[in-house]
Design a protein around this nucleic acid. Structure first.
Lengths: 157, 157
DNA sequence: AATATATATCTTAGTCACTAAGAGAATTAG
DNA sequence: CTAATTCTCTTAGTGACTAAGATATATATT
């Protein structure tokens, strides 16, 4: 799974490269695609970038015509970022090979097996979130007070 | 799964941050951990960075005492990069929360279910590799000659 | 053996995304 | 109605990255 993840990152890098946008720009497009219309601040949160960096990201994406800035009329400090669907499609094209490849894989499983995989995906995500929280906790603990955690050796493949 | 992947990337960013090394430095450590002793060129291949960038990565990692350069005696152009296990352990510590979280998830599955998950992980990885190849093929085809690929709309969660 | 070509890493100059700190504008609290 | 807070943007400076070419070793050709 770690290998898949790493390869997936590479895939994204290639797409960003071809689309002529920066890596984190594409990451933001991904978030916008998953979450819909979000504020600049939320993008900063989710990506782990500073708000200053996000300004740059959105500037570039807007210039490329991929997103639009929309001021919130209720709270005029906020800036919503919304994808421009037609333009975003052009980038989406590059994910077709990935979708097709994964579809092929998924097609080899029965409905019941797919349900298991879905459960695992959901629980796994919760696990990763929990791990992130635990990591933060670990970092707030001064090193000498940390429980002596042992890293398990993984078997070499 | 995409969410897990994105969150996993964030996790790695945090670890790199705390460990005081750059993101791609950590990525290289990961590869070294998975593949063992590899050449600088291989690192470039796997990470998608230029060889020049890898020189920088290895310089930083070596200065931090995390890896060692070892010249291949059979082919003295090659430089093997090898992790220094003791030093790498300190970074490994930060992955303990992730390991524990995932172990907790895996513990909720029977052996048979785990076999299914393993099969999926393996096939999924092959799928991602295949997708990468397909993407390269797509890029070698001039845009007007590309088959009209339709991106499937994913259901919003 | 000598020259040419290929392979592997490193060097250099320049670019661009990122951070930190703080400014500006709008909102909420006292 | 001033003060504190929230949200985005601006600015200056940093550092990892690329492209192109240098260096060193290995392999192929005549």
């Amino acid at each position: 799974m770690r290998r898949s993840s790493a390869q997936g990152v590479l895939y994204g890098q290639t797409v960003a490269n071809v689309a002529g946008i920066a890596n984190s720009d594409l990451e933001c497009m991904d978030i916008l695609y998953l979450e819909g219309r979000v504020t600049a601040g939320r993008l900063a949160e989710v990506t782990g970038l500073t708000t200053g960096a996000i300004t740059g990201v959105v500037d570039r994406l807007e210039k490329a015509g991929l997103v639009r800035r929309e001021r919130d009329e209720n709270d005029r400090r906020k800036v919503f970022i919304a994808v421009v669907p037609e333009a975003a499609m052009k980038i989406g094209q590059f994910y077709v090979p990935m979708q097709q490849a994964m579809e092929k894989v998924f097609n080899t499983y029965s409905d019941e097996e797919l349900r298991l995989l879905l459960r695992f995906a959901t629980e796994g995500y919760k696990g990763v979130l929990a791990a992130t929280e635990a990591l933060k906790g670990l970092l707030d603990t001064p090193p000498e007070k940390r429980p002596d955690l042992k890293l398990k050796k993984l078997r070499q493949p």
